[in-house]
């Protein structure tokens, strides 16, 4: 695992349409060896379609995709020896018990680690004897998660795996995710739960209308957004003056109290300016994840 960083998933210019709907519209995505990569986007933006192309279940209309150095459509079967997948909507065979499904999927993947399987069943507190139709949504997800995590897959593709889990199980999942990373395995994690993304992901890609609109570490993404500033000044400038300072927006100046937002690259300039104005109190607030994503989700698509 110490040899240089290689890319596990490389996707360029992927397009896929269903009838008149363009599900993927020139999507690019790179996931590096050993990282937990967050895959985010509003509902219907193309996350699941991308994942299904990466699994070779759908055939892209154009563009190239390479997973673990193989073509997911042509080499699907061979490739799947190294992949474990948890679908967004876990469906189980109504007449098979959870334990039977775990064994089935494990054997179809080429074997299952019994000790790890037992440990995971215990950690997720899963009743393996219930039949598929008797499980709740969260328990169906646990079945799929145990099957995936008990495998030796080099790449895990998890499509909203925790959407039905309770907070305790969510914590178990986080710990397992950390283990995966420690073992140098790669995870592509699609999720709407931002705290989960913040804790687990090294990098994220945000998809909108079938295209990646942003990709990078959370620090990188934060850097692209504005910081909110609240300052109390002794010598107040006029609002027009403040608005002319570089990178400053949304100016609200009442008496000596200034509220504005500033581009991350100009935060230093602003602090200098404020120092000259005799600043008495100053708070700077980086954008919360929610704000960051809401901004990305709302932005008009170019």
């Amino acid at each position: 695992m110490t040899d240089g960083v290689t890319d596990v998933i490389t996707v360029t210019g992927l397009r896929k349409s269903f009838g008149h709907t363009n599900a993927l519209d020139g999507l690019d995505l790179t996931v590096s060896q050993g990282e937990v990569h967050g895959f985010l986007g509003p509902n219907g933006s193309g996350k699941s379609t991308t994942i299904r192309v990466l699994l070779g279940l759908l055939r892209a209309d154009s563009g190239t995709a390479s997973v673990l150095g193989q073509d997911p459509w042509r080499d699907a079967t061979e490739l799947h020896r190294s992949i474990a997948y948890v679908p967004g909507d876990v469906v189980l065979w109504p007449t098979l018990s959870g334990g039977e499904v775990i064994d089935l999927l494990g054997r179809l993947r080429g074997g299952i680690d019994d000790a790890r399987r037992r440990r995971l069943v215990a950690r997720f507190e899963l009743d393996e004897t219930k039949k598929g139709r008797a499980y709740s949504k969260g328990n169906r997800q646990k079945v799929a998660l145990v099957a995936a995590l008990a495998s030796d897959a080099r790449l895990l593709i998890l499509d909203e795996p925790t959407a039905g889990l309770d907070p305790l199980m969510e914590e178990v999942f986080q710990a397992e995710l950390a283990d995966l990373r420690a073992q140098g395995r790669t995870t592509l994690l699609s999720s709407h739960i931002l705290s989960e993304v913040e804790k687990a992901c090294d990098r994220v890609s945000i998809v909108r209308s079938g295209r990646i609109v942003d990709t990078g570490s959370l620090a990188d993404l934060r850097h692209l957004t504005r910081t909110r500033v609240h300052a109390v000044l002794r010598a107040a400038p006029t609002p027009v003056e403040v608005a002319q300072w570089p990178g400053v927006h949304d100016v609200d100046l009442v008496g000596g109290e200034l509220r504005c937002s500033v581009e991350a690259t100009h935060l230093g300039d602003l602090v200098e300016q404020l120092g000259r104005q005799g600043v008495e109190a100053l708070t700077c607030q980086p954008p919360t994840l929610e704000e960051l994503f809401l901004a990305r989700y709302h932005e008009p698509v170019p």
């Binding site: 018990s97 775990i102 089935l104 219930k130 039949k131």
Partner: peptide, 23 residues
């Protein structure tokens, strides 16, 4: 009533053919 099943998969559940047969 719906009954519970075994906690481990039988020998049939190790290939697509076995799965289809069991179902």
């Amino acid at each position: 009533p719906a009954r519970n099943g075994p906690s481990r998969g039988g020998a049939l559940l190790s290939s697509p053919l076995g799965l289809v047969t069991q179902l």
